[in-house]
Simulated assay, not measured.
Amino acid sequence: MEGQQTVNFAELIAKGGVTIWPLLFLSILSVGTILERLWFWSRVLIQEKLIINRVMEAATLNWRLVEKIAREYKNHPLANFIYSPLQLINPEPEVFHLALEAAADDELAHMRKGEKVLEAVIALSPLLGLFGTVWGLIQALSSIKLSDLGTASTSGVTLGISEALISTAAGLLVAIISLAFYRLFQAFWANQVRIFRKIGSQLELIYRQKWLEAETEGLPVDFHLETDSSLER
Rank of each mutant, 00 (worst) to 15 (best):
121 V>N: 06
95 V>D: 09
175 A>F: 03
53 N>Y: 13
188 F>N: 10
159 L>C: 02
127 L>H: 09
105 D>R: 15
3 G>I: 05
154 T>E: 01
90 N>R: 07
232 E>I: 12
192 Q>V: 12
64 R>T: 02
162 S>D: 15
48 E>C: 12
166 I>C: 12
169 A>P: 11
33 T>H: 03
195 I>R: 08
108 L>M: 13
76 H>N: 00
34 I>W: 03
19 T>E: 00
66 V>E: 00
179 L>H: 13
116 K>M: 10
86 L>C: 07
175 A>L: 04
201 S>H: 14
172 L>N: 08
12 L>K: 05
83 Y>A: 02
49 K>F: 14
189 W>A: 14
121 V>W: 00
146 L>C: 08
183 R>A: 14
43 R>T: 12
169 A>N: 08
105 D>S: 14
21 W>A: 06
140 A>N: 08
193 V>I: 15
130 L>I: 07
56 M>H: 07
212 L>S: 02
117 V>C: 12
172 L>I: 12
149 L>E: 01
138 I>N: 01
168 T>K: 06
39 W>R: 02
28 I>Q: 07
77 P>A: 03
70 A>F: 09
34 I>R: 00
28 I>R: 12
72 E>F: 11
83 Y>M: 09
201 S>D: 09
136 G>Q: 05
103 A>F: 07
139 Q>R: 13
27 S>T: 14
194 R>P: 14
114 G>H: 12
64 R>W: 00
220 P>H: 02
11 E>V: 03
51 I>K: 00
80 N>R: 06
42 S>P: 07
120 A>K: 02
198 K>A: 06
129 G>D: 02
31 V>K: 08
227 T>S: 10
117 V>H: 08
118 L>S: 13
34 I>K: 07
64 R>D: 00
97 H>C: 03
231 L>W: 03
196 F>C: 06
60 T>I: 13
217 E>P: 05
81 F>A: 00
191 N>E: 14
188 F>I: 13
150 G>W: 04
124 L>W: 02
40 F>E: 04
128 L>T: 00
28 I>C: 14
55 V>T: 11
10 A>V: 11
114 G>Y: 13
76 H>L: 05
72 E>C: 03
8 N>I: 06
62 N>R: 13
104 A>L: 02
33 T>K: 04
128 L>I: 05
144 I>H: 10
113 K>N: 13
173 L>H: 12
33 T>V: 01
5 Q>F: 12
6 T>H: 14
122 I>A: 15
159 L>T: 11
218 G>K: 02
50 L>Y: 09
85 P>I: 08
180 A>F: 10
1 M>I: 08
189 W>F: 15
100 L>I: 09
75 N>W: 12
121 V>H: 09
68 K>Y: 03
95 V>Y: 12
141 L>P: 05
102 A>G: 10
90 N>W: 08
134 V>C: 00
96 F>H: 03
21 W>P: 08
